[in-house]
Design a protein around this nucleic acid. Sequence first.
RNA 1: GGCGACGUAGCUCAGCCGGUUAGAGCGAGGGAUUCAUAAGCCCUAGGUCGGUGGUUCGAGUCCACCCGUCGCUACCA
Length: 512
Amino acid sequence: MSGKTFYITTAIDYVNSKPHLGTAYEKVAADIIARYHRLIGDDVLFLMGNDEHSQKVEAAARAQGLSPLAWCDLMEKEFRDAWKALDISFDDFIRTTEPRHVAAVKEMLTRIHAAGDVYQDVYEGWYCTGCEAFKNEGDLVDGKCPDHLSTAPTFLEEKNWFFRLSKYESFLKDYYAEHPDFVRPAIRRNELTSLLDSGLKDISISREGATWGVPVPFDETAVVYVWFDALINYIAGLGWPDDSERFERYWPADLHLIGKDITRFHCIIWPAMLKSAGLPLPAQVFGHGFVNMGKDRMSKSLGTAVDPQSLADRFGADALRWYLTSEAGFGKDLEYGEDRLVERANTDLANGLGNLLSRSVSMLVRYLGGVVPAPPAAPPMRSKVEEAVPVYREALDDLDLKGAADAAMSIVHRANVYVDEKAPWAMAKDPAQKDALAGVLYELMESCRVAGVLLTPFMPAKMAELRERLGEDAEAAPKIDDASWGGLPEGRKLTKPSPLFTKLALDEADAS
RNA sequence: GGCGACGUAGCUCAGCCGGUUAGAGCGAGGGAUUCAUAAGCCCUAGGUCGGUGGUUCGAGUCCACCCGUCGCUACCA
């Protein structure tokens, strides 16, 4: 046990539509990081949630003839079901309509108001409900928001409360300079430093006359602007300001995991809010890439195929998780292709790891009656494992999910080569090599076991199955110490297993 | 318009502060095997490293400009 805490959050999701593959990608990545930190013994708190205060949400509810809250209740189920289907192991789930969140928002407003960072002014401009944001006229194309062509922006002129963001410009510049890893990847930090260099403007943080939102504590005629509201979930989820014990334990957050499009809110506005309220800043914000659908080859099933739940149903949550995080570098965009998903699952999982387990156990059963032999003296696979584990850990410590996936899988590749080098089936024909054969088989089983430990954060369900096939306790979550060589006990009796991963197929009736 | 990123084998990409025959994975082709989910293993890609011109003994690797993609940001209107 490290005794260290690790607090990780994802963006909370707008509930104006069901979860899509892009949001699922973020949650899967966060889940792998959270599970990794549990693996290494950290006291992890993994927070997710839904963002329910916005005009978009209100409109979506009205369109269904529901009250906003009734709609949000329905959507909460949708999201929770999706995350369950993907094995997302969040520890807490916050909704911005919950009392604990509302209380935190009010406290935050009260604090920054007391700090002299809030003032009233008139705002006029074009407001795009699609973006939930005011747009500069220059942003509009033919009078419409280029991102939301179907909904015309409305011209608003209202009294708003403003937050003195400009006051924190030099503070943020210094903070960025002193904390080079605050914003990652580097490309996002560069964008934001140049934004800081160009100067910050104060921002409107309230909406007049709206009702679906948190009332401004010192002005009952206004509600807090949804973006300002949403960010506060990260401390509200810790019980701030009431549960100081929980808050003190986990805050500041170790990692805010968000999409690359909302780095500005998290890396400029949010730190300024915290500073104004006298709270410490999170250690790191990571803006991951998007899952692009543009080049999807399976256009005929587009729409249903890219629904994360249906993908999990068709291919299995673990295969989907593996594809999403092992295919492209984290932080870069992923070009989604169902054929690529199937290819990766078949190559790495069925043909690689699954087949290695099958051939290893099968030989154990055939040559040694299924009884795990004693560990050999100086096994080559041991050095391979002991080389891969640190690479895996360094990669995950650096949020390099693909690097960690590759490191774990390198054990599998090496073991498959090792089988060929040793040719156990030939050794089995020579009684003089009986001990050597037993040693090789032990190495293969043990390699599977360790790879299974390392891959548990990526594929929790399948790796539990793997443990079961090796006679381990499938329910007990492994720890990093279990990745040490020699953990498989001598004398255990194994039986020939069924395939761990079945081959996937693109379900094309007219495949050619 | 400003700032920045990227453009390397069919595909996806590695290549840190410049240095012998430019790498990996996947796909594809060939080969030797048989324990295994017809899986695994071995070999094979001769690619103007976007273009041009520079700096240098020597440049995907630095500089300038150009072309093409993209991100952030501004403004004209």
